[in-house]
Simulated assay, not measured.
Amino acid sequence: MPLSEAEKTFILHGVDENFRQDGRDREAYRPMELETGTVQHAFGSAHLRLANTDVLVAVKLEIDAPFPETPHEGKLEFFVDCSANATPDFEGRGGEDLAVELANTLASAYQSRQAFDLRKMCILKGKKCWKLYVDILILECGGNLFDATSLAIKAALHNTQIPKIKAVNIDGDNIEIEVSDSVSDCEKINIENAPVLVTLCKIGQHCIVDPSLSEEQCTVGSMVVAATKNCVSTISLLGSGSLHQDTLFQFLDFGCKIANRLNEALMETLANISVTNENVGFLK
């Protein structure tokens, strides 16, 4: 529902005073809850809820042929489905443009080897590799979709078990891959440097993170920064607003700082889930 001018002014003044309408400061996120292993027949999965934003991610695997230009790498593909029940804006074909934009941003963020090294997905150079399908279902949209989705993806990849290859039999052009069928005979994916997406919104003269739906309507410019511990893997401007050059560099520094903070909290949470086998909330 569009905001009135009075509501926009109220939000603007709150951001200016570093006291947003829900009591947060400009750098604070809303509470999150995370579950892993929620999809029974997937190789890995995660369910993350950020306030009213609800995202489910499942990872599937299959053996495929690598691309000719990258014969020593595996494949990674993102598919986003925006449920019509997530928000009235997704009814009909309303969610398709957002789904394509989100999938493209994620593909760009994971393209760098410093972010995610697909060489470890190679089985036989130039012949066979693992292909990872990352399916993302947007169950509810309450703002800040890019951040929530990236955290859910990283958690799902952490939960993913890749079966070990027992044997590779080559008979001319015929290649047979023998895969272990034991649940305990699997390998984990190294997601330490996998990127975290941070959405930065400029409201008035200040930058905020984790915008709510109402705050997104007040922004004069938004940018998504995909950052790892070592680099910025991609940046993407959202909407029709523009940013001054000085603001752009400010956003990059701010986004990297927030991404590192999010990554530390997520990795600590995933470690706790692995030890206790219980799903927990974080950033409360």
Rank of each mutant, 00 (worst) to 15 (best):
H72T: 12
R261A: 07
Y29T: 01
D25L: 09
L145A: 11
T276N: 07
C218G: 02
F43A: 13
R93E: 13
E178S: 12
A46N: 10
E216T: 13
M223V: 11
L157C: 03
V57H: 09
E216N: 07
V55S: 12
G221S: 08
D173A: 05
V225K: 01
Q40D: 14
T149R: 01
A28E: 11
S112L: 13
Q217G: 14
D253N: 13
F146R: 02
D173I: 01
I191E: 02
K154F: 00
N174S: 02
I175E: 04
V220Y: 01
S242E: 15
L266I: 06
N174T: 01
T228E: 13
L248K: 07
T269S: 15
G143D: 09
T269C: 14
F116T: 04
Q161V: 00
I273Y: 10
E77G: 11
K257G: 05
S236D: 09
K131L: 14
N174Q: 02
C122N: 12
R119W: 11
G74P: 00
V225Q: 04
T53A: 06
R26A: 06
S242K: 06
L243V: 08
T228Q: 15
S214D: 14
L76G: 08
E187Q: 00
G44P: 01
L238V: 15
I189K: 05
A107C: 05
L237T: 10
T160A: 06
L61G: 03
D173S: 03
V39K: 09
H244V: 06
L139H: 00
F19M: 09
L102E: 04
L106C: 03
E187A: 08
D89I: 08
A152G: 13
E77F: 04
A148M: 05
N18S: 08
F19H: 14
K188D: 02
L76V: 06
I235E: 04
S222M: 13
D253L: 06
I273G: 11
Q161P: 00
K257L: 08
E268K: 12
V39N: 06
I177G: 12
A227L: 06
C141W: 06
L12S: 13
N159F: 12
H158L: 00
D135I: 12
Y29K: 02
D81H: 14
D253E: 08
D181I: 09
C207Q: 03
G74T: 10
S240H: 08
A265C: 12
N52M: 08
K164H: 10
K164R: 15
P2I: 03
L48E: 04
D181H: 04
N169G: 01
I170T: 14
R26S: 04
P195Y: 11
F146I: 07
C231D: 10
A155F: 07
L98V: 11
D81T: 03
E140D: 03
I153F: 02
H47S: 07
R20D: 06
L50M: 13
H47E: 08
D173P: 02
E178M: 05
V168T: 15
N169E: 10
L98D: 04
E176P: 03
V280S: 07
T228P: 14
V232N: 09
L34P: 05
D181T: 08
D117G: 10
C231E: 13
R119V: 10
N263H: 15
L3C: 10
K8F: 02
V15C: 02
I175L: 06
L50R: 09
C141F: 15
P211M: 03
